Amino acid sequence: MGIAEFPPNAAKARHKATGPEVAYVLEGEVTVQVDGQPDRIVHAGESYRMPANVVHVTKAGPAGAKVLATWAWIPGKPFNVAAPN
């Protein structure tokens, strides 16, 4: 479990997690971009989940964002894996 703070319009590059993730937006908003799906804007007070091994980008809105996330990590594997563009 951890808190990620995004500066305004900052994005976490394309990646996938080796385990599932559940996130709750504490402040601001984030756009979650998943390959093959429409972008989803998640506002403060809302949550989203990301299954394991789904390539995605998370981008903060113009005011930045603070996100509380819980991850299931598989020992011996890296958690976040960069994905090619």
Rank of each mutant, 00 (worst) to 15 (best):
residue 29 E to R: 02
residue 40 R to C: 14
residue 56 H to S: 01
residue 19 G to Q: 00
residue 25 V to I: 13
residue 57 V to H: 04
residue 18 T to S: 06
residue 17 A to C: 13
residue 50 M to F: 11
residue 31 T to L: 09
residue 57 V to P: 03
residue 46 E to G: 03
residue 51 P to Y: 01
residue 61 G to A: 04
residue 58 T to R: 07
residue 30 V to L: 07
residue 57 V to F: 03
residue 44 A to T: 06
residue 37 Q to Y: 08
residue 41 I to C: 01
residue 37 Q to F: 14
residue 56 H to K: 05
residue 40 R to A: 13
residue 47 S to D: 14
residue 35 D to S: 13
residue 53 N to T: 00
residue 36 G to V: 11
residue 22 V to G: 09
residue 30 V to T: 03
residue 58 T to M: 12
residue 23 A to V: 06
residue 49 R to M: 14
residue 22 V to W: 10
residue 37 Q to V: 09
residue 25 V to S: 03
residue 62 P to V: 08
residue 51 P to W: 02
residue 21 E to P: 01
residue 42 V to N: 01
residue 23 A to D: 04
residue 27 E to I: 04
residue 43 H to M: 13
residue 48 Y to M: 10
residue 50 M to K: 10
residue 29 E to M: 01
residue 22 V to H: 02
residue 57 V to R: 02
residue 51 P to E: 09
residue 35 D to P: 10
residue 42 V to W: 04
residue 53 N to R: 07
residue 31 T to D: 03
residue 25 V to E: 02
residue 27 E to V: 06
residue 36 G to D: 04
residue 30 V to F: 14
residue 40 R to P: 13
residue 62 P to C: 04
residue 49 R to H: 15
residue 17 A to S: 14
residue 39 D to L: 11
residue 25 V to F: 06
residue 46 E to M: 09
residue 42 V to E: 03
residue 57 V to K: 06
residue 23 A to T: 08
residue 60 A to R: 02
residue 39 D to H: 07
residue 29 E to C: 02
residue 41 I to W: 02
residue 52 A to T: 08
residue 48 Y to T: 14
residue 28 G to N: 01
residue 36 G to S: 08
residue 43 H to N: 12
residue 32 V to K: 00
residue 37 Q to H: 12
residue 51 P to K: 06
residue 36 G to N: 07
residue 19 G to M: 08
residue 40 R to E: 11
residue 54 V to G: 06
residue 18 T to Q: 03
residue 30 V to C: 09
residue 35 D to H: 12
residue 50 M to P: 07
residue 52 A to S: 10
residue 57 V to C: 10
residue 17 A to M: 14
